[in-house]
Structure formats: structure tokens, C-alpha cells
Amino acid sequence: MAVFKPKFITFDCYGTLINFDMAGAASAIFADRVSAEEMLAFTTDFARYRMDEVLGAWKPYPDVVCQAIARTCKKWGVEYKDSDGAGIMEACATWGPHPDVPAGLAKVAEAFPLVLLSNTMNDLITHHVPRLGAPIHRVFTAEQAQSYKPRMRGFEYMLDELGCGPEDILHVSSSLRYDLMTCHDMGIKNKVWVNRGHDPANPAYGYTEIKDIGGLPGVVGL
């Protein structure tokens, strides 16, 4: 079969490209309030509440983080301080790409325009795009779309802005729940799952699996 040549390769940014270590940031901040033995369960709940917080009307991402960590603390009976959410957001701005990202992105950027669709704020993502090591054609944020993934609105906004349809893109993400399930429902047939251990596999959603971005050039015949 012929290799699919998309008009654009679109990416989730945080987790997929940027090593978005929310668990590490929360672990450092709450080390004095949550035991080491319980920290994994605590940060897992934090991730689940972040997902829940983005399912409604759009709000600034710092509000998503602060409300999610406050809800986690309430569940665990742990003291919450206003500085906790702010500390996590400060850590966000410092994170860089996974080691495999710059070379893999640079290779595919030689042949395809690269696009980001990210659950972030306009000012936050400016810290991260220059660290990716490849030219990025367009960047779309939840702030621009006024909607977070996994809702469809962000994908619709991106496709409208690019002037293309679901059949024209290859979407790449490490998250089935935030990205690839929605892509499936929207008829985006060409999908790549970067298996970074964020979600369990579910081949029913029709993706090509790679272990890191180094495998992406092979997917598009480079």
C-alpha cells in the first residue's frame, strides 16, 4: 500500500513532545504532606481531576491546575495552599522535550508542515516551541479555540484555520484519552500513538504505534 502523505502532521505537545512532568512537580511540592508510598496514587488523582476540569467551558490553564490540585487535596485530606498551583505552573515553563523529539521532528519537518494543537495558554507555549528543535508551521492553543481537548472544538478550530479536512492530516499523540479517541470520533483516520506509557493500548481506535518520535519518519516514508 502507498504511504499516506498528509498535508500537515499535527501534534499534541505536552506529554507527546514536551516532557510534561506534572507528577514530578506535584511530588516535589507535596513531599512534606504526602508520603512517598502514597505519592503515585496522589499524583494519579491529580491527573484525573485535570481531565475532569477541562471537560466544561474554557477557563485559563492555571485555573485548571489550581482547581484540580485543590480537589485532589480535598479527597486526600491534605492541606492546600494557593502557592501550590502557582508552583506547579512555574515548573511547567521550565520543561523541555523528550530526548527523542528534536531529531525525529527535524527529519519529518524536511517534508511536511508541522502543527501543534495544545491544551495550553498562548504565553505558556512560547517557552516550549523553541525547545523542540524543528520549525513549527502553526501553533493552536486551547486559549485560541476556547476549548480543551478531548472536546472536539479544538480540532475543528485547527482544521478550519488550516483550511483542510480530517482526511488531510496525520495526528500524533501519546494520549488516547485526550487526542486519539476524539480523532477517531471525528473521522481523522490517520493517527499515530506514541507509546510513552500514559494510557493502555487500544488498537480499536485505529492508530499506528511507535515508541518515540524517532519512529515517525518511517510512518510517512522518510
Rank of each mutant, 00 (worst) to 15 (best):
I169Y: 01
T182N: 06
F155G: 08
H171M: 14
P166E: 04
A142V: 10
S174Q: 15
I169N: 06
Y178Q: 12
E209V: 11
D160P: 04
K211L: 09
D168S: 11
L162I: 06
V192H: 04
V172K: 07
C164S: 04
L162Q: 08
P203E: 13
L170R: 11
D185F: 07
W193A: 10
K191E: 05
G187E: 05
M181A: 14
R196E: 03
Y178L: 12
A145D: 05
C164E: 06
G197Y: 01
H198C: 07
G197F: 07
Y207I: 01
E167M: 06
L180C: 03
E209L: 09
C164M: 10
I169P: 01
H184Y: 15
Q146G: 06
R177L: 13
G187M: 09
P200D: 13
A201V: 02
E143H: 04
K211R: 10
K149Y: 08
Y178R: 01
V192Q: 05
Y157G: 03
A142M: 12
R151C: 11
Q146R: 15
F155D: 08
V192Y: 07
L176W: 00
G206M: 01
S175R: 07
M181C: 12
C164D: 04
P217S: 09
H171K: 13
M158P: 13
N195Q: 07
C183P: 10
I210Y: 01
G215Q: 09
G163C: 12
E167W: 10
S147K: 08
Y148W: 03
M152V: 13
C164P: 09
P166V: 04
P150I: 00
G163Q: 11
N190I: 00
M152H: 14
Q146H: 12
D160T: 15
N202E: 15
G214I: 03
V194D: 09
A201D: 14
M181P: 01
I169R: 07
G206P: 08
G206I: 03
T182F: 05
E143D: 02
M186C: 12
S147D: 13
K189N: 14
D185A: 15
L170H: 09
K189Y: 08
Y157K: 05
K149C: 08
H171W: 13
L162Y: 05
L162S: 03
Q144V: 10
Y148H: 07
A204E: 15
G206Y: 05
Y148M: 00
Y157L: 02
I213N: 02
H184D: 14
Q146K: 15
S173R: 08
G215C: 00
H184T: 12
N195Y: 04
G197C: 02
G163H: 10
H198A: 14
R196V: 06
D179N: 10
R196G: 12
I188C: 11
Y207G: 04
Y178W: 14
M181N: 13
P217I: 09
G206Q: 06
K189Q: 14
I210R: 02
N202A: 14
E156W: 11
G214W: 00
K189G: 14
L162P: 09
A201R: 10
M181W: 11
S173V: 12
E156V: 13
